[in-house]
């Protein structure tokens, strides 16, 4: 892992706040940080290019914008096939996240896909479509009934 300077940490702290809605928002951030705007813009681009920042932009409340149902679909896939199947599942546009995770004696599911759709029925239809495509049918859909917490991570604040 690349080392992260104290200045970079300050910039990251600033970029995880909400961007000001003034005409020159980065200039405002740069002034608060005591650096030139040009340097800040270069740093933002560097964070993007290096992958330290996955994206810069708006985070939406997806229920509000019409994606009312989200399902965590969990799959029991033979470990020898999980990599291939995981890559295959990731191709579906409806799948926003796809991970392999450990199993437990009372938890046999090793692949996790997040599906966003407009209804629960549509989530079921999408899961079925994925199952038919990959040829594995041992899966379950876990719907969220209540959102108890959802915040953006604040790095370098501990």
């Amino acid at each position: 892992m690349m080392s992260i300077s104290e200045l970079d940490k300050c910039i990251i702290r600033a970029l995880q706040e909400d961007l000001p809605l003034s005409p020159e928002p980065f200039k405002k951030l740069a002034e608060d940080l005591g650096i030139e705007e040009e340097m800040l813009l270069k740093k933002v681009q560097f964070f993007l290019d290096s992958g330290m920042m996955r994206r810069f932009g708006a985070t939406l409340r997806h229920q509000k914008v019409g994606f009312k149902a989200n399902a965590m679909v969990v799959w029991k896939i033979p470990p020898s096939r999980s990599k291939e199947v995981g890559h295959h599942m990731a191709q579906f546009a409806e799948v926003s996240h796809c991970y392999e995770r450990p199993t437990y004696p009372d938890w046999p599911y090793n692949l996790f896909t997040m599906i966003h759709a407009t209804s629960k029925e549509e989530c079921h239809t999408i899961a079925k479509k994925i199952a038919l495509t990959v040829g594995f049918f041992d899966y379950d859909l876990l719907f969220s009934s209540h959102e108890l917490k959802k915040v953006s991570m604040r790095y370098f604040c501990e």
């Binding site: 330290m52 920042m53 996955r54 810069f56 932009g57 708006a58 939406l60 409340r61 953006s152 991570m153």
Partner: peptide, 25 residues
Amino acid sequence: RISNLKNQGFIRRVGGVFDSRKLGY
């Protein structure tokens, strides 16, 4: 427009989304 979309709750935040692993987390 962005201000209204925030007030109406469509936008949670505009800012950087970081990769926790690449930041050493």
